Simulated assay, not measured.
Amino acid sequence: MKPFQLTYTAESQSLLREALGEWGISKRTLASVKYGGGQILVNGAEVTVRHPLEKGDAVTVIFPNEEHGKGLLAEDGNLDIVYEDDALLIVEKPPLQNTIPSREHPFGSLANIVAKHFNDHGIPSTLHIATRLDRDTSGLVCIAKNRHIHHMISMQQQEKKMKRRYEALVHGLVEKDEFTITAPIGRKNTSIIEREVREDGQFAETEVRVIKRLPDYSHISLQLNTGRTHQIRVHLAHIAHPLVGDDLYGGKRERLDRQALHCTELELIHPVSGEKLFFSSSLNEDMQALV
C-alpha cells in the first residue's frame, strides 16, 4: 500500500521544524512520522527537523501507513459515497445505523463498512470519522483518510471554518423565525448516555431558523457552531421543542420511529488544496413524508 504523502514549498529561510508547524503538522503527527516508519525529505534527501530550509526548498512528508484497530471488523454493506479523494471521504449515513460499533450494535456500522472499502481499495488508514452522527440521525458524514488530515479538519472545527447544517422536525410551533441557543452542555449525573444544559457544562451554540410551521410540528434548519455530544437534541429539549421521535429527550414516536434529524449540508476547506468544498443532501423519505 502506497503511503500518503504531501509536498510543500518553503517560502522563506527557517528551520524545518518551524515550517512544519506553520503547515499544520502537529507534534503528535510529527512523532508518528519520526517513530512510525514515515520520512521527511527536503529536495529528495531525508533530513531531521533541525534542517535549515532555504526559500524554494521542496519538503515532502511521507506519513506512515495506519492499521484498523483489531476490534474493527471489515464488513460488506452499502456505502453511499458523495465525494472521495486521497485525503477525504464524504458519505451519506442512513438512519438507524451506528457511526461506530457499540455494545448493543457491534456489527453493520458505518465504520465497519468503510473499513471494508479501505481494504478493497488499498487505503492504508485507520478510521478517522471527523463528524459523527447518532444512530438515528441521517445525512452527511466527513471521514479523514489519515491522522494528519483528521487534525487539520479538527482545527477547522475549532476555528469555526467548517459548517454543518441540519434539518429537523420538532414538536410544537417555534415562535421566533431565527434565533441562537447558547447554553452549556454536560453529562447528566444520573445517566451515562444523557446530556443536559448545566452551568458547569461545555460552551455550546446552535443557530435555529424556521423553514415551515405545520399543524403539530415545526420544520427547522440548524447550524452547529460547536460540536458537543447530543448538542441539537439537548438544546431543542431545553427550549421545550424536542425532536420528533427523540424519546430520550422528550420527543414522541407516534409518527416517526427515530429522531427527525438529518445533516443536510457540509462546508469545509480542503485540508490539502485549500479549495472550499460544499456538499448537500436531501431529507430521507420518512422525514420528507412528514414535511
Rank of each mutant, 00 (worst) to 15 (best):
I181A: 01
G139T: 04
E285D: 15
R187W: 06
Q288E: 15
I129W: 04
L127P: 02
G36Q: 09
N112F: 01
V42G: 00
V82Y: 08
L290H: 10
G21S: 12
R28I: 08
T226Y: 04
S281P: 06
G71F: 07
N112P: 06
P106E: 05
G69Y: 12
L30P: 00
K116V: 03
D120Q: 12
V42A: 06
E159H: 10
V291L: 13
L16W: 09
R228W: 00
P101R: 04
Y166T: 09
H128L: 00
T48V: 04
S26F: 02
M1D: 00
P101Q: 06
G77E: 12
M152G: 01
L236M: 15
G274H: 05
T206K: 07
H262P: 04
V59K: 01
T48H: 00
L261A: 07
V47Y: 01
F118L: 12
I149R: 10
P242H: 05
L20K: 04
M1F: 12
C142D: 02
I123D: 08
L290I: 15
A237N: 12
A168M: 11
I90G: 06
G250Q: 01
T126Q: 13
N225Y: 02
E194D: 03
E11T: 13
I113S: 04
A289W: 11
G37D: 05
L277N: 08
E199Q: 14
V170E: 08
